[in-house]
Simulated scan of single mutants.
Amino acid sequence: MNATKLRAGCAIVIAVLALDAMAQSKPIAYPAKGQSPQKQQSDDGACYSWAKSNTGIDPATASAAPPPQGGPAVGGGERVGGAARGAAGGAVIGAIAGDAGKGAAIGATAGTMAGGARARQNKRAQESNAQAQSQNAMSTYYRAWAACMQGRGYTIQ
């Protein structure tokens, strides 16, 4: 079951990276009205500024945004919480078996490991959300840039 979840998580990460590469690539502008390379460069710069000011998105900073940080180490509070829950459960089971202290120690170890897994899963979800937000921002910016370039006589692909 864990191997299936791991494979599914890896597939999602690969799909997100592939979509990111497609979403981050700038559309191609063809000079449909015979614009010179200098005119195209000038129009591109003007449309960059226009799209940036109208969307509030700068592609230079949107694609380089750092991933969100979860805390000083992976597992912010999930490991501690898992250890506490595991120790409590282990103490109860250990008391039934005759050694509450040993049961609590085993439970705390298992709880710490479960908390670490939960922390890694939460971190992956945060990174995926940040990636999706970056993709949406770039898509919005490039739609505005394309509208500007089309208005100046370019065919956009």
Rank of each mutant, 00 (worst) to 15 (best):
G76N: 14
K123G: 04
W145L: 00
V16M: 11
G45H: 10
G56K: 01
M149T: 00
A97M: 07
P68E: 03
T112G: 14
V16L: 15
G82P: 08
A15R: 12
A114D: 10
N122I: 04
S36G: 08
G45L: 10
K5W: 06
N129A: 15
N2F: 15
A146R: 00
Q131V: 06
A132N: 07
I14F: 12
Q24F: 11
R79G: 09
G101F: 08
G9H: 01
R85G: 15
Q69R: 14
A29T: 04
A104P: 03
A110Y: 02
I57C: 02
Y141M: 02
G101S: 12
D99R: 00
A146W: 00
Q121P: 00
A100G: 02
A62Q: 02
M1W: 10
A51D: 01
G75D: 02
G116Y: 06
P66W: 07
K52V: 06
R118P: 00
R79N: 10
A87I: 11
S63A: 15
V92Q: 09
A18G: 11
Q121S: 11
A32W: 00
M149E: 06
A104H: 01
A83L: 08
G82Q: 06
A11T: 09
A105H: 03
A105I: 03
S139P: 04
Q40A: 14
T4W: 07
I93G: 02
S139T: 13
G75P: 01
A73Y: 13
P67A: 14
T4L: 14
A147Q: 05
A11N: 10
R143A: 08
S63N: 05
A51N: 02
A105T: 08
G86C: 12
A130N: 05
W145S: 00
A108D: 05
I96Q: 00
A125N: 03
A3P: 03
A117Q: 07
R124L: 08
T4V: 11
G115D: 02
A65D: 09
Y142Q: 05
D20F: 10
A11Q: 11
A130W: 01
K5H: 11
I28M: 11
N136H: 08
T140L: 03
Q24K: 07
A100H: 02
Q69A: 15
G86V: 11
T109W: 09
A88M: 12
Y142G: 00
G34E: 07
A91E: 02
G107N: 02
M1C: 14
G77L: 08
I12K: 14
Q133D: 12
K123R: 14
P27T: 02
P37C: 09
G81I: 05
I12T: 13
A32Y: 03
V92E: 09
G56N: 09
R118Q: 09
A137T: 01
G77Y: 10
P66C: 11
G153T: 04
K33Q: 14
G98K: 04
G90V: 05
K26M: 14
Y142E: 00
T112M: 12
V80S: 12
A105V: 03
G111Y: 01
A108P: 04
D44N: 13
A105D: 08
G76A: 15
G76P: 08
L17Q: 15
A11E: 10
D43C: 10
I93N: 04
M22E: 12
T4H: 09
Y142S: 00
A105K: 04
G151L: 08
E78C: 07
V92R: 08
D44P: 01
L19M: 10
A119I: 04
Q24S: 13
T55L: 07
M138K: 01
G82W: 03
S25F: 04
G34W: 06
I156W: 03
K123A: 14
